[in-house]
Design a protein around this nucleic acid. Sequence first.
DNA 1: CGTTGCTTTGAACTAGCTCAAGACCTGTGG
DNA 2: CCACAGGTCTTGAGCTAGTTCAAAGCAACG
Lengths: 250, 250
Amino acid sequence: MDNAIRSLIFRLETIGDVTADDRAALASIPLRIASVPKGGEIVADGEMSTSCCLVVDGYIYRSKMRPDGKRQIFSLHPPGDIPDLHSLHLPRMDHNLAAMSDCTVARLAHADVKAVIEERPRLGSLLWRDTLIDAAAFRAWMLMLGAAEALERMAHLFCEAYTRASMAGLNEGNTFRLPLTQTDLSDILGISLVHANRTLQDLRSRGLMDFDQQVVTIIHWDHLRALAQFDPSYLHYLDSRVGRIDPAKM
Amino acid sequence: MDNAIRSLIFRLETIGDVTADDRAALASIPLRIASVPKGGEIVADGEMSTSCCLVVDGYIYRSKMRPDGKRQIFSLHPPGDIPDLHSLHLPRMDHNLAAMSDCTVARLAHADVKAVIEERPRLGSLLWRDTLIDAAAFRAWMLMLGAAEALERMAHLFCEAYTRASMAGLNEGNTFRLPLTQTDLSDILGISLVHANRTLQDLRSRGLMDFDQQVVTIIHWDHLRALAQFDPSYLHYLDSRVGRIDPAKM
DNA sequence: CGTTGCTTTGAACTAGCTCAAGACCTGTGG
DNA sequence: CCACAGGTCTTGAGCTAGTTCAAAGCAACG
């Protein structure tokens, strides 16, 4: 089976049941594989989309630019995610989709995805569920942006990124790659670049984690999680499927 | 036909096609009508939900409380909305649902909704679309919380509230009721109560709008909209269905 | 009329911003 | 093999949007 579909199935299995027939149906969807260089745009704000983008390798992000040049990053997507699954029923994009690192993506035509869903409604429900989890993550971030200060926001971001990387099997123990610059970080957290730099130094000096050369090292998960008040339940994964994503339990 | 279902159908018609059969199917869903007093909790954070809540009269809001007592309000819901439609596929609540004003709500059992969707997949797609629009609104708010200052955020909130009230047919010209205290306002905007008060005075003194006794009056829509950089496209309504929601065009 | 919830005001304080410059690092062309 | 260019990170310093604390005014309601 295709590697691309394998990562999608892996992702879907962390949030719900996928039968052998479901897997076969997913595998039958025609894919158009493409490479996207770091920073490359995949779907632009305002565009009418006719396909969905499955991340196969690298990180994709969603963002919106404001007239004054400020950019807000909404989410980061590791392999297995379909960041614009919503375009299936909301084809006019209200934000941008772009590559955070050099990426491989697979395009699934809306028509093909809809055909599979029509055939297998339970798979449709699972994909629906996936978009709902996406929305739950937005709520978690609204809470951070509206009610937490910079240090906690940053800690929360690394907690989430670590958890999601682990769910996708991309961590190596307490370490994982996160291809962000500090400018990106500041655009996620809604703070200035200078303040992002200082906040990161604060986290480092507290001995909770490190982030260097795009590699995150979790040093003190329990404390980091406590500082962030991180509760992963908004990610709505099935505990039974996700092994031990908490390094404290490793 | 039931008044409750009528407002739901009205809402769905603003975002997609609803056939006569669809209307009949929706009308067949058993309802449990209930009154909820202002401030009353409808579904609590962490609870397992077995039904969805259709707003029939009044305003419902979604929020999350933090351990330190800070509250972030995620969204406001006029009649016709089903704020927790997501609970259909994500039954464990990750936030609270409560009444902003004295309310009438109708409860639709998940099982009944699922049965209708199974019967009429196109209706399922429309409901899916509705949850996607919900997510789009979260993105719009993340953008405000992360990248706009208080004055613009507040202007944006009133622009959105006015647009949504108009979509639901709840405005009277440039005026509509919005049952919020300034404390609520501050919890939506992620600013302090004191600052919310001063920001509101700023908007008033600029002659853009007024908000008094829970009644919003739009005085200068074009300027308000420009200040907020408000672009309603994230609400994803069908222009053909929503008459003239822009008072400048009335 | 007294309590209760909401709004308004003043004033001191601070988290985070902007501006500006220097350090560092990596790839490229001479 | 060096030099330089462009992107990234770090630091200092002054500034401001927004916070907190505290108190007073106001309106509705029993």
